[in-house]
């Protein structure tokens, strides 16, 4: 049953949300100058793990990334994606975390770090699936020769899955998973009683 004496906890959370959102945007703006190059490097390294020769390229281009292959003509088969679109969901995750009571209490940093690592992992995979989908469908005869129809369907599905459901739903899931006691308390349940 909801705890009647904690009725205003949700109100406090809502009042903190706007400021938490501003703080989250500030953090995101501060980290993205280092985050975007790391994202490109990791996505390229991961894609090249199973390639022979390793020719996939993920090149940082402003706030986006150019995806392609180094063994094809320089002016063919390149795609630019927005890295802001890939990693913006860090903002709602941080905002939801910052709006909880005592977000930086002892022991919470490790949970925040774990949530950040999982979300970053999905950012890397999002870039990888964009690159693989491009290679499977957007490079003409080379795509036809090197990828099956099943692979094209699979990469298309993975790209969509990471672009939309994962991007929008994962911050919420990580928020609940990282701080379950606080979220259940917000809902009116207090497991410690």
């Amino acid at each position: 049953m909801p705890s009647p004496d904690r009725h205003d906890e949700l109100g406090v959370f809502f009042r903190r949300l706007p400021l938490a959102l501003v703080a989250a945007v500030a953090v995101w703006l501060a980290v993205r100058t280092a985050y975007n190059p790391a994202l490109c490097w990791t996505a390229q390294a991961l894609t090249r793990l199973y390639e022979n020769p390793p020719a996939s390229r993920v090149i940082l281009d402003g706030d986006g990334a150019l995806l392609g292959r180094s063994d094809l003509r320089a002016n063919s088969g390149w795609l630019r994606i927005s890295l802001t679109q890939v990693s913006f969901n860090l903002v709602p995750l941080l905002a939801l975390l910052f709006a909880l009571p005592h977000p930086f209490r002892r022991g919470r940093w490790s949970r925040l770090l774990q949530a950040f690592i999982i979300l970053s992992g999905t950012h890397v995979l999002t870039v990888v699936w964009h690159l693989k989908f491009l290679q499977a469908t957007g490079m003409g005869a080379w795509s036809q020769a090197n990828f099956s129809n099943l692979a094209r369907e699979a990469y298309g599905m993975l790209q969509y899955f990471f672009d939309i459901p994962v991007t929008f739903a994962l911050p919420l899931l990580l928020w609940v998973a990282a701080y379950p006691d606080d979220v259940f308390s917000l809902l009116g349940f207090d497991e410690r009683r």
């Binding site: 709602p92 905002a95 929008f168 009116g188």
Partner: peptide, 20 residues
């Protein structure tokens, strides 16, 4: 990142409100 973040947060806030 303003409106997409707001949409996610709005959905969460609405759900919290409904539950509570």
């Amino acid at each position: 990142f303003v409106w997409q973040s707001l949409v996610i947060i709005f959905g969460v806030a609405l759900w919290l409100l409904w539950v509570r």
